Simulated scan of single mutants.
Amino acid sequence: MPRWLWLWMLCMAGAAQAAGQSVEPSVFRALNAAQAAQQQGDYAAARRALDAAKAKSDSPEQALLWRSRGYLAWAEGHNAKAIEWLGKALDSGKLDTETRTSEQLNLARLNLLERRYAQVVSLLAPQQAAASEEILQMLVQAYQGLGQPAQALPLAERYVQGNPRAADSWLQFLVAVNAGLKRYPAAERWQRQLLDRQPDRARGWRQLAALQQLSGRHDRALATLRAAHSKGLRFNAAELDNLVLLAGVAEQPWQGAQLLTGMLEQGLLPRTAGREERLALLWWQARERAAAARIYRELAGRSGSAKHWLNLAQLELEQARWQDGLDALAKAERAGAEPSQVRAWRNWAETELSLVRAKRLASAG
Rank of each mutant, 00 (worst) to 15 (best):
G93M: 10
K94I: 07
K94T: 00
R100E: 15
R100Y: 09
T101M: 13
T101A: 11
S102G: 11
Q104R: 14
R109I: 15
N111S: 09
L113E: 11
R115E: 11
R115I: 05
Y117F: 14
Y117M: 06
Q119D: 15
Q119T: 09
V121N: 03
L123F: 02
L123K: 03
P126Y: 12
P126F: 02
Q127C: 01
A131P: 12
I135A: 05
Q137N: 07
M138N: 09
L139G: 06
L139H: 00
A142Q: 01
Y143K: 02
Q144G: 15
Q144F: 02
G145R: 03
L146F: 05
Q148C: 02
P149E: 04
Q151D: 12
L153V: 15
L153A: 11
L155F: 04
A156Y: 05
E157R: 04
R158F: 00
R158C: 07
Y159C: 04
Y159R: 09
Y159T: 09
N163G: 04
P164F: 03
P164G: 14
P164W: 04
R165N: 15
A167Y: 08
A167D: 15
D168Y: 10
D168G: 11
S169K: 09
W170A: 04
W170D: 13
L171R: 15
Q172V: 01
L174K: 03
L174D: 06
L174T: 06
L174F: 09
N178I: 03
A179Y: 09
L181E: 14
K182G: 00
P185G: 05
A186Y: 07
A186C: 08
A187M: 07
W190Y: 14
W190V: 02
W190M: 00
Q191S: 06
